[in-house]
Design a protein around this nucleic acid. Sequence first.
DNA 1: ACCTGAACACCGTTCAAGT
DNA 2: ACCTGAACACCGTTCAAGT
Lengths: 239, 239
Amino acid sequence: MTASTSDRPALDLATIVSTAVRLADAEGLERLSMRRLAQELGVQAMSLYHHVPNKENLLDRMVDAVYAEVDKPAARGPWREAMARRARSAREVLNRHRWATPLMDSRREPGPSTLGHHEAVLDCLRVGGFSVALAAHAFSLLDAYIFGFVLQEQALPFESPDEARAVATAIGEQMGDAYPRMTEMLTQHVLKGDYDYALEFDYGLELILEGLEQRYNAALDGSPATITATSTTTTGGKR
Amino acid sequence: MTASTSDRPALDLATIVSTAVRLADAEGLERLSMRRLAQELGVQAMSLYHHVPNKENLLDRMVDAVYAEVDKPAARGPWREAMARRARSAREVLNRHRWATPLMDSRREPGPSTLGHHEAVLDCLRVGGFSVALAAHAFSLLDAYIFGFVLQEQALPFESPDEARAVATAIGEQMGDAYPRMTEMLTQHVLKGDYDYALEFDYGLELILEGLEQRYNAALDGSPATITATSTTTTGGKR
DNA sequence: ACCTGAACACCGTTCAAGT
DNA sequence: ACCTGAACACCGTTCAAGT
C-alpha cells in the first residue's frame, strides 16, 4: 500500500493534494492525518510542512481541487440549461468526494478553481440577461440548494432505492405510532417505490429554475430600465 | 470560570449537554473536548463516560437540543406562513449556535426533538392538503435550502452589511480584473448597499414557497383523485 | 532547498481501581 | 452507582539539526 522510499516521485504540492484527496475518498476525512498522508507518500510527516503551511491550507486546496471537477457553465447558450447542468455536475462530483460536501460552503480561502467557477456562473447569468441583483439572488439560491441537498442526501442511511425500502421497513416497525406522518411517508411513499433521490434533486432544482425564470421574465416585461442596463452586456459579452 | 469542586451540582446528562452547547457557542466546536468539558463541569474527563457512551453521542444530543429551540409549525393555520416562520426560526437558531449548522443535516441518530420537529412539519403540510408525495418534495426542498443557505451565510467573512462593504472594498482592490463579474457584483451590488443577507434568505424562501403553492394548486385543480385521497386528512386532522 | 527526529501540548477512550 | 488516575494510541505543529 505505502509507496516505497526508493522510488518516491519527488514530493511536490500537486501530488500531496491529489494523494490527500484520494486518501479522503477512500477512508474518509477523519482518517486523513498529516502523519497518515505522509506515510502514504513514503515520507515523514514534517516534510509536508515544507510545501503546505498547515492542515487547514491543505483542506482549502483539496476543496479547490474538487471545484475543478465541476462543469463550468458556458457563457453562451441558454442559462437555464447551463445552470441545471452545473447543478447536476456538482451533485455528482460531491457524491464522488463525500468528505468535501460539508467543507465546500464553509472555506474562507477560495482557490483559483473556486473563483473561476463562480465567475463562470455569474458570467453565464449576466450574459443571459440577468441584472446584477437577480444574478446575486440566483447564485445564492442555487448554491444553497445544491449543497444543502447533497448534505442531506449523504446523511441518509441508505444509498439506493432498494436499500431505502429495506431501511424504511425496519424504521417503520421500530417507530410504532409515535410519528404517524413519518410512518405514512415511509409506507405510502418510500415503500411504494415513488422515491428516488436523483428525481428528488431534479424536482427542487426545476422548481427553483422555474421561479427564477418567472422573475427574469417579469424584469424583462416590467422594467425596461433593467433591460437597457444589461443589454450592453448581453450583446457585448464574449469569451 | 470553572465550577469549583465543592458546589458542583450533581452531574447528570442534561447539564452535560447544556454545558457542552454553551461551551461550543462560546468557543467553537473545535475547542469542545471531553477533557475541556469535564473541566468546565468541575469533574474528571472520564466521569462523562458514565452518562454518555462517546463523543459522537454527545454531539447527537447537542444537535437535538438545538432542534428543540426551533419553532414547530402548528398543524392548523395556513401552511405557507407556518413554513416561512419555521424557516426563519431555524435560521435564527442556527446563527445562535453556529457550530451546529454543519452537523444538523448530517447526524445519523436523530433525537426526539428532531423527530418531533419533522413530524410537525409533515403534519402541517398534510393537514394543509399536501399529498404525501408533494409533502416529501416540500420537506426536502425547504430543508436543503435552509441549511444550505445558513452554511453559506456563516462562511462569509463578515457579519453585517457595513462589514460586507468594507470587505468588498478590500477584496475588489486585490482581485484586479481577473474576475470581472465578481468585481461587478461587489461594486454595483454589495457596495451600493443593496445587500442584506436576511433579505437574501427571504427572497429564496418566498421563491420556493411560491413554487410549492403553484404545484399545490395545480394538484387541486388537475387531479381530483389527489383531493379525495387527502381530504379525509384535511377534515380529520386534529391536535 | 528539502527532509528528519525528538519533543510539546494536546486528543478520545479503555481499564482497573477507588468510594 | 458514580467517579478517578494512569495509560494507550493517536493528533497538529515547533524546533533544531541534518544533507
